[in-house]
């Protein structure tokens, strides 16, 4: 008994059998970087990816006829916009007096009615000419304190004439406003605009017909039990290409290995861009690291109508750096 007390020790852990990989499944690791410095566009058909910075723009203008205007919710935690009504640029404003609930951000589902600007270009004057409701918006850029003068931007969308948007804007303390033309291009989803550089940017590294999903930073509505309400929270996740890519989240509904083409053809897709979203990974506070939800499973219907099943298998690279999502996918045929 004393000897067993003296020599007892932890049992060595038995080794696992290697996992069985479904035939046809390929894996791909993408690089957003440890501080999420890149957003990554991925194409299932070619397996190719392209990346750029998610932080170089403030607002973006859609090339589609939907006239959608989006703000960069992934840029920082407070990036948001609110409607000030029909005021002029010379009217003084006090951002601190604006109630918190008036600040809006875009719903990542892509629904224009749930965006910060909403359908502001409402009035269709002619076939490709729209005018706005003349509403003034205040955009909270969330700059540092020493840049207080540039912490907010007043902006009014004047019109869209064909492919060009016309906006009027100024930093919030300025009495004089700037007018900017923002051209859009049919091969891109959006043209991006940066207030500091005062010009439109072609930020998408590849054409909209060359990618299916985008790994990026965006703002999601999270329910905060502490205050019993939802708040915008910047997450790292996946949005689908609004140009015809459809996705469905089947986590907990079916196992990855059980999905075949017949099953994929039978599911009903919707238009939400954030079906894949961010919660395929969970952060364990105790372990201080992300773990992948082992049940995560998705089906992607590509722009050309091909079906893929997909799951995430890792969020770390070989150096144990976060921001390297690894996905496994298979073309269903």
């Amino acid at each position: 008994m004393s000897i067993s007390c003296f020599i007892s020790c932890e049992k060595p852990e038995q080794l696992y059998e290697p996992p069985i990989i479904s035939a046809g499944t390929v894996t791909q690791q993408l690089e957003m970087g440890p501080s999420y410095g890149s957003q990554v566009y991925f194409d299932f058909e070619t397996g190719k990816s392209a990346s750029n910075s998610p932080y170089s723009w403030d607002i973006a203008f859609s090339s589609s006829s939907e006239n959608k205007i989006i703000i960069n919710g992934g840029k920082n935690g407070v990036f948001s916009a609110c409607s000030l009504g029909s005021i002029s640029f010379s009217d003084p404003i006090d951002p601190n007096s604006i109630e918190e609930e008036k600040w809006k951000h875009d719903n990542p589902s892509g629904d224009i009615d749930s965006s910060a600007f909403g359908p502001t270009l409402k009035r269709k004057i002619s076939g490709n000419y729209w005018e706005s409701d003349s509403c003034m918006y205040l955009i909270k850029l969330g700059e540092e304190k020493d840049l207080q003068d540039k912490a907010y931007v007043k902006l009014r969308v004047i019109n869209r004439n064909g492919t060009n948007y016309l906006i009027e804007w100024s930093y919030w303390k300025d009495k004089m406003s700037n007018h900017s033309f923002i051209p859009t291009y049919p091969e891109k989803n959006f043209t991006y605009f940066c207030f500091d550089c005062s010009q439109g940017i072609l930020n998408e590294p590849i054409d909209k017909d060359e990618w299916d999903i985008l790994f990026t930073r965006y703002k999601e509505e999270i329910y905060y039990a502490q205050v019993n309400q939802t708040e915008g929270y910047t997450v790292t996740g996946v949005l689908s290409n609004p140009e015809n890519t459809k996705t469905i989240n089947l986590t907990g509904i079916i196992e990855y290995d059980d999905i075949d083409l017949a099953y994929a053809k039978g599911v009903v897709f919707d238009d939400h861009l954030n079906n894949i979203g961010y919660d395929w990974k969970n952060f364990s506070i105790q372990a201080n690291k992300y773990t992948i939800n082992p049940k995560n499973t998705y089906i992607i219907k590509s722009r050309r109508g091909l079906f893929y099943k997909m799951k995430f298998v890792d969020f770390y690279n070989d150096n144990d750096e976060t921001g390297f999502p690894k996905l496994a996918y298979q073309l269903l045929q």
């Binding site: 696992y16 290697p18 996992p19 990989i21 499944t25 894996t27 364990s284 372990a287 773990t291 992948i292 082992p294 298998v313 890792d314 690894k326 496994a328």
Partner: peptide, 10 residues
């Protein structure tokens, strides 16, 4: 921790 599977190994 719990075991994680990245399809190549556990």
């Amino acid at each position: 921790s719990n075991a994680e599977n990245n399809l190549i190994t556990y």
